[in-house]
Simulated assay, not measured.
Amino acid sequence: MQFVSAYAELKAQVAAWTSLSDPILHTHLGMLVFVATAVLLRKPFRSPIPLLMVTLFEALNECLDRINHGSWRWPNTLSDVAFTLVWPILIFLLARARKLRAG
């Protein structure tokens, strides 16, 4: 349980340090994980691996939030997931469509 509390505190400190809202942080961190995974693993954006990593990180984040708060906060959880995944999904789909047209 100490890990969950420490994680929640770290998130609060990052939000305070950056002065960014929660939706903006989710958007930027989702893109960071997506691009970093593609670069580090040398995978194209059309590969499902970067998108899977973003999804896994966001799922873990929301599970830790649930443990920290003691219950699901569905409106918050669903908006967090949407803000985190919307751009990686769009880039993934565009890269896949481009590959299909080119190939």
Results as ranks from 00 to 15, higher is better:
residue 28 H to E: 05
residue 85 L to F: 06
residue 18 T to E: 10
residue 84 T to H: 00
residue 88 P to S: 12
residue 7 Y to F: 15
residue 41 L to Q: 14
residue 74 W to Q: 07
residue 62 E to N: 08
residue 43 K to D: 04
residue 3 F to S: 05
residue 15 A to R: 15
residue 58 E to W: 04
residue 89 I to A: 08
residue 25 L to F: 08
residue 21 S to A: 13
residue 2 Q to P: 00
residue 44 P to Q: 07
residue 54 V to S: 02
residue 6 A to T: 04
residue 66 R to V: 08
residue 23 P to V: 12
residue 13 Q to A: 07
residue 46 R to E: 14
residue 34 F to V: 02
residue 93 L to E: 10
residue 59 A to P: 00
residue 66 R to W: 15
residue 87 W to R: 00
residue 51 L to P: 01
residue 21 S to H: 12
residue 4 V to Y: 03
residue 38 A to L: 04
residue 103 G to F: 07
residue 34 F to W: 05
residue 81 V to F: 12
residue 49 I to D: 06
residue 44 P to C: 09
residue 101 R to Q: 14
residue 2 Q to C: 00
residue 35 V to W: 02
residue 4 V to N: 02
residue 65 D to Y: 06
residue 16 A to V: 05
residue 28 H to N: 03
residue 61 N to W: 11
residue 91 I to Y: 02
residue 97 A to N: 02
residue 70 G to A: 09
residue 51 L to K: 01
residue 86 V to S: 11
residue 88 P to D: 10
residue 70 G to L: 07
residue 38 A to W: 02
residue 4 V to C: 03
residue 85 L to D: 02
residue 26 H to M: 12
residue 49 I to F: 10
residue 27 T to W: 14
residue 16 A to R: 15
residue 26 H to P: 07
residue 21 S to F: 07
residue 9 E to I: 03
residue 82 A to W: 06
residue 55 T to A: 14
residue 47 S to A: 15
residue 31 M to K: 03
residue 30 G to V: 01
residue 18 T to I: 06
residue 34 F to L: 08
residue 28 H to W: 10
residue 66 R to E: 13
residue 7 Y to C: 04
residue 85 L to Y: 04
residue 5 S to T: 11
residue 28 H to V: 13
residue 76 N to V: 12
residue 3 F to Y: 13
residue 96 R to Y: 04
residue 86 V to I: 15
residue 33 V to G: 00
residue 87 W to C: 04
residue 85 L to H: 04
residue 58 E to D: 07
residue 18 T to F: 09
residue 72 W to I: 09
residue 39 V to D: 02
